[in-house]
């Protein structure tokens, strides 16, 4: 089997006596959407933070395309191929959708800090940014608008476009459906479905219908441990998962 794009092994992180990440192993391969689910407080955010680089693990390692990410900053991980979106969109609100995406193209351009050519007329930056915006279904009429004047759903798309514009090896999506409503959720699910072949996705999501529709495999995190990993049907039938989610004795 091919080398996993993302490999998490033996990851541990404790806050005092609380083991928020308690020996987590995950592997994600090309062409795959792996959903990470778990009840509130299971340690999903802590795990994401360690993959994204905002939190250093106590033990264990994270590799992206075979490269150990230990000690790498958020920016260095992004350049290594980690694209991510946030639970609450994190964009520069006064700037246009195009400018928010353009910076991701700039980050992997050969001259990242040019001081002469204006970015507004720099086709090498604008063309890929606009292609990414079009890819997530945002039309040209919206490109020049400040992100602050876009709808919540459009902002989620801009964030996804920014992640895609960096040509990532892996997408780490933190609740991309949150707050989208039924139509928005369906549209976002269609989009992610189409992206599956392009880039593998680690999907953290509370919307179970979306998770079961999209995921090739599901990993269930409870109290810092992965209690089950497998195909959606197997997870649905798993006694330990039902116990954790529904509190019923199987």
């Amino acid at each position: 089997m091919a080398e996993p794009v993302l490999a998490v092994s033996g990851l541990r992180k404790s806050f005092g006596a609380l083991a928020a990440t308690d020996g987590v192993d995950l592997a994600l391969r090309d062409g795959e959407i792996l959903a990470l689910i778990g009840p509130n407080g299971a340690g999903k955010s802590t795990l994401i933070a360690q993959i994204a680089g905002t939190l250093a693990p106590d033990a264990g390692r994270v590799t992206l395309a075979g490269r150990d990410l230990a000690g790498m900053s958020v920016a260095a991980r992004a350049r290594a191929g980690l694209g991510r979106t946030f639970q609450v969109s994190s964009l520069a609100m006064p700037l246009s959708a195009r400018a928010n995406v353009r910076i991701a193209v700039q980050a992997r351009a050969p001259r990242r800090f040019g001081v002469l050519r204006p970015v507004a007329r720099d086709a090498a930056l604008n063309a890929p940014a606009e292609a990414a915006l079009a890819r997530v279904g945002l039309g040209p009429a919206r490109w020049a608008l400040p992100v602050a004047s876009l709808s919540h759903g459009e902002r989620r798309r801009v964030e996804l476009a920014a992640a895609l514009a960096a040509r990532p090896r892996l997408l780490l999506l933190d609740e991309p459906m949150a707050g989208l409503g039924a139509d928005g959720t369906a549209a976002m699910a269609d989009l992610l479905e189409a992206l599956r072949a392009e880039v593998p996705i680690l999907l953290v999501e509370h919307d179970m219908s979306a998770v079961f529709r999209l995921a090739d495999r599901i990993a269930v995190l409870v109290a810092g441990r992965i209690i089950a990993t497998g195909a959606p049907d197997a997870i649905r039938a798993d006694a330990a998962v039902q116990q954790a989610y529904l509190g019923v004795d199987a």
Partner: peptide
Amino acid sequence: ARFGAALALARLNPVRLATAGI
């Protein structure tokens, strides 16, 4: 230019800039 674009992002949302890879 590009430096200014990065500086604007650093002012408005440093998380976005770092996530983009700078």
